[in-house]
């Protein structure tokens, strides 16, 4: 497991494209302490390493696949309705480099 500290949490937050106040990083650090300790305890539960991780709540599968038929797309107006910066029917961003 990667060792965490304030710097790592900050880096982690920035990778998620946001920042927090120093106070919050400290609150988070405490939360990390508690949670990782709890997770350590979970690692000691009988049989925890004898089972597969569970994604779906019960054994389930499907055979359904969508037919390859195009649906009517959104109108351009609708598609862009919630975008704040639009030019020539496209969403504007500061120039993306790299």
């Amino acid at each position: 497991m990667v060792k965490y500290d304030l710097d790592l949490l900050k880096k982690c937050a920035n990778n998620l494209m946001f920042d927090m106040s120093n106070d919050q990083y400290n609150v988070l650090l405490k939360e990390f302490d508690v949670l990782t300790k709890q997770m350590e305890v979970l690692g000691e539960i009988d049989g925890v390493n004898d089972v597969e991780p569970m994604t779906f709540p019960y054994p389930v599968y499907t055979t359904y696949l969508r037919e390859d038929v195009a649906e009517t797309p959104l109108s351009k107006k609708e598609a862009l309705r919630n975008a704040k910066d639009v030019e020539d029917g496209q969403i504007v961003l500061p120039k993306v480099v790299g």
Partner: peptide
């Protein structure tokens, strides 16, 4: 070159006017 996208019914076409082939999932 399918008719529709991997996970939505948005049409797959090339050289169309921007943002006219969008299903809700695509955005």
């Amino acid at each position: 070159k399918t008719n529709s996208k991997s996970f939505s019914g948005g049409p797959v076409k090339f050289g169309q006017e921007p943002n006219t082939l969008v299903a809700p999932l695509d955005m």
